[in-house]
Structures are given as structure tokens and as C-alpha cells.
Amino acid sequence: MGQGGEEVVSVINVHALDYHDETSYGFLRRVPSSLKVVLTVAVAICIAVLNSFSAQVFLLAYSIFLVAISRIPLKTLLKRLIALDGFVLMIWLTLPFFSEDGMRMAALITIRVHAAVLAFMALLQTTSMPELLQALNQLHIPRKLIVLLHFTYRYVHVLGEEALKIQHGMILRGFAPSLNLSTFRTYGNLIGMLLIRSIMRSQRVYDAMLLRGFDGSFPFSTRQAKLSRPDVVRIVMLFASLMGCLVV
């Protein structure tokens, strides 16, 4: 892409599609993925259901603890939170002015949003997609849904790169977006092209599956590391301490 190209076109960022960094996540990486999924859902439900301030503060503290032990780089964390805080700002700019209860609600929402996002990041960003698929399989999520999740994520990468190539082609031929009909036509063509390529690719992938004897079953290999005893104790404590939100 030429100089300044990036600021001219709001390009699709393909690199944002990888959420998981394999290098160094401590203890949470060793927790079996299915347990992490269960814990994520449990935390999300607690955050949604409990209405007292103290419970929400407890959950926020719990989430911060999770993030602290997840060893997610601070930079990644801040980037995510800043994106989130645009929404929180909007809540503060509207709610307190239109309702008596608004201030309290805005505060509660702020706590909830942060707790939910931090817990989610700590637990699922330490889980790679293959592990996640395997976990969902162990938790008896419908097979078709898991296969759908897998194929969508797998080919988002491929199609993202194709979209990038088409965009580069557009820029090289002098496309500069602005708010007019020809820009919309160009985007329409880009999307139409992407959809057509996706359907052609889906035919080729399906052929490739048939060639390897696809008969409707789709294996997810299970790779389970053995847990050490201290880790088992840690996991039990992790689950037990979540119960704290029910008593505070």
C-alpha cells in the first residue's frame, strides 16, 4: 500500500482476527478449556443476575484477579478497555441526565461492563480456538454449531486476506472513498465479489472434504495435559471463590 494509503481507506484489519497469543500465559493456560468455558458462563450469569452493588464490586475484583493471573500483556488489555470505554462514556453522558436513578445505574453498568469483559478476556484469550472447539464438544454443544463456529473462524482469515487484496487493487486504480454513490457502488462490488468468492471456495473446500472421504462426521482431536495436584487445588479455589459473590 502506498504512503498514506491507510488513512485514506478504512481498511479491514486482518491481524485483529487473532485473539490468542500462545507464548506465555501462566496457570490459566493449564486449566482445562471446558472448565474455563463453564467458569466464563458462570461469571457472566452472576454479573447479569445479581443487582447489589457489593456483589458487583466483588465480581469486578474477581475479574481483575483473573486478569492479573492470566498474564495478558498490559498493552493488549488497555487497547481493549479503551475501545470499551467509549460506550461507558456514552452511558455517563446520557443516563444521569434523564432519570433520578441514572447516576446509580450508570455506575452499576460501568462496573458490570468492566467485570464482564475482564473475566471474558482472562478466561478465553488464554484458550486457543482448537482448545475452545474441543471444550464446546466436551460440553455437548450441538455438533453442527461447533463445526459452524470452526469454519466461520477458519475462513474469516482466508477471506479477510482476499478482501485486503481486492481493496489494494481498488486503491491502485485510484479509489478514494468519500460519501457518494460511486463509493457505495465500489463497496457493494467489493462485498459482492467477496460473497461470490466465498461460495466458490466453499465448493472447493467441500470437494476437498469429499476427496478425503467426508461422510458427515467431523473429528476434534482431544489433547489433554495432565493436571498437577497443586493446579487441581487452585482450580477448586477459583470456582469456590466465585461463590463469594452470593454472600457479600
Binding site: M129, P130, L133, Q134, H150, F151, R154, V158, R201, R204, V205, D207, A208, M209, R212, G213, F214, D215, S217, P219, F220, S221
Partner: peptide, 22 residues
Amino acid sequence: DPEDQLFCPTLFDDVLFGPLNM
């Protein structure tokens, strides 16, 4: 295009896919 032929979650799953179906 190898992207069409690697459709499983991991490379190992992909290599396993054929033999299991056999």
C-alpha cells in the same frame, strides 16, 4: 490452494481426517 484443503482446527486434525474416514 492449500487453504481449501486445510479445513480442520489444527494441522494434526487435518492429517487425521482422511485416515479416520477410511
